[in-house]
Every structure is written in structure tokens, then in C-alpha cells.
């Protein structure tokens, strides 16, 4: 599978993400300049942390209009995976690909620390290899990580299992201790903590590794399903694959498969 890391002017965690995927996970990854128009051939797109466009106006407000963002929308609408980390999360909320908004930390400080997170759901392509309720330690580094969303949307998000990570000790004032959320279809994830900085023993923390391994497992299972679906169509039969009967099948897969069979 192939990851793509989008580089906006002012991104500064793009190299960390690239390194984690290439060297810690041994998977194919490419940088994608923000002025690019297409994302063909990529399975998972990472919007990295940093200060895109100097955080002018609001964090992520200008990056949202970058040419690449139309392709990110198309990629997400096709059920493919998108993950926004830190500034990437802020961009995804500004772009309307994720609900809510991120505002100034309650204590007004830029917080650089490693904090415990609770994995709230494993029913996403990003968290399937964690255990529900598991506590993992992931670094944070942000000044605007205070997550806000209106009550009605929050209620729907809870019902639909869109709260993915929460802080054990809320560092920034986020509503309901929220550290990471996904969209309704569960193929777009945004989180303030940096899993890409927790992928190697030498850095003293590998708790972020399983997030990327979950993505890889999800994409590789999907390609097995796609291949099987094509094969079945040719032979005129339709057997259930292991993934189809899996309890934790991400919605993104369902959509993809329906597309293939319709």
C-alpha cells in the first residue's frame, strides 16, 4: 500500500510522518506538494502537523483552500483513508471533512508533552489493532487543541462512535476530553496528538505504531476484498470473505464493496 504526506507551506511534521511510514513501518510513502491536483494511486493520505500558511486568520483556515484539498475531498468521498494530525486535524475541521473546531488551549499555553490517551473505539480502520479502553501514551505539541462542537453534533458523534481518542487528564480544555474524532463513515480521522512521534523504541515509545499498522491492515484487507469481488464477478459467484463477516468491518469497506457489486 502507499501513503501520501501532503506538504503545505509551513508544515513541519511532514518529515516525521514520512520517516515513521518509511523507516519504522517499511511502507511506501511519497510527499505531495499542496499545489498537486490528483491523488491517484494513494491508499492513505496524511495531513501533517505544523503551521500551514503561518496559522493566519485561524489554524487551517487558509490551507483548506489549497488546490490539493479538492483531491482530498474526492479521496475521502471514495471511502479511502485520510488522517489529519495536529494542524492536519485543524485543516480537516476547517474544510468541513470533520465536525467541530479547535480553539486556543484553555490555559493559553503551547503544550509540549507526552500524555495518556484512552482508545474509545476500535471500530475504525485507524484503531482496530488497539484494545477498546486501552490507555496509550502519545506526544502532543499544540497551542490550539481545545476541541469544540455543538451539543447536537456531539450527541450524534457519540451515538455513531466517532469519538476515537480522549485525554485521560485533559490538557487543553477540550470538550468531553476529546483528542481525536472521525467522520460518520469512519474513513477520515483527525487527532491533535502525534502518533508518528511514537513509532520507534529508540524514541522510548512505540504506542503510535499500531495506528499505522491498523491502517495498513485495513487497506490490505480491502485490497483482498476488492480482488475477491472482481474474481467473483468473473466467476458469477459471490462468497463471503472473512472481512465481510468481521464484526469490526469499517464502514469505508462496506461502501467500497457495495460500489463494486452495484
Amino acid at each position: 500500500m502507499k501513503f501520501g504526506v501532503i506538504v503545505f507551506p509551513g508544515s513541519n511534521c511532514d518529515i516525521d510522518c514520512f520517516h515513521a511510514v518509511k523507516d519504522a513501518l517499511g511502507h511506501e510513502v511519497e510527499y505531495i506538494w499542496h499545489d498537486t491536483e490528483e491523488l491517484d494511486g494513494f491508499d492513505c493520505i496524511i495531513l501533517p502537523g505544523g503551521f500551514s500558511y503561518g496559522d493566519y486568520l485561524r489554524c487551517g483556515a487558509v490551507a483548506r483552500f489549497a488546490r490539493i484539498m479538492d483531491a482530498v475531498r474526492t479521496h475521502a468521498a471514495a471511502g479511502k483513508l485520510v488522517i489529519g494530525i495536529c494542524n492536519g486535524f485543524q485543516i480537516l475541521t476547517e474544510a468541513g471533512l470533520l465536525p467541530g473546531a479547535l480553539v486556543r488551549n484553555k490555559n493559553l499555553k503551547f503544550i509540549c508533552d507526552t500524555v495518556p490517551l484512552r482508545v474509545e473505539t476500535t471500530d475504525t480502520p485507524f484503531t482496530s489493532l488497539y484494545k477498546k479502553g486501552e490507555i496509550i501514551n502519545i506526544p502532543i505539541a499544540h497551542g490550539e487543541g481545545n476541541y469544540l462542537v455543538d451539543e447536537d453534533t456531539l450527541k450524534k458523534m457519540k451515538e455513531n462512535g466517532q469519538i476515537v481518542f480522549t485525554y485521560v487528564d485533559n490538557p487543553n480544555g477540550s470538550m468531553e476530553n476529546i483528542a481525536g474524532v472521525c467522520n460518520e463513515q469512519k474513513n477520515v480521522l483527525g487527532m491533535m496528538p502525534h502518533p508518528e512521534r511514537a513509532c520507534e523504541e529508540i524514541l522510548g515509545n512505540t504506542d503510535g505504531l499500531r495506528l499505522f499498522e491498523s491502517i495498513i491492515a485495513a487497506v490490505e484487507s480491502e485490497s483482498v476484498i476488492s480482488a475477491q469481488a472482481v474474481k467473483n464477478r468473473h466467476t458469477g459467484t459471490r462468497r463471503k470473505s472473512a472481512m465481510e463477516t468481521s464484526r469490526s468491518k469499517p464502514i469505508a469497506f462496506t461502501q467500497k464493496e457495495e460500489l463494486l457489486h452495484d
Binding site: 486568520l57 485561524r58 483556515a61 483552500f65 475541521t93 476547517e94 467541530g100 473546531a101 480553539v103 469544540l148 462542537v149 455543538d150
Partner: peptide
């Protein structure tokens, strides 16, 4: 569209 984020 840009100048304000009407969520907040």
C-alpha cells in the same frame, strides 16, 4: 466562507 468559522 473564510473570514469567520461559524462553528465558533
Amino acid at each position: 466562507g473564510l473570514l469567520a468559522n461559524t462553528v465558533i
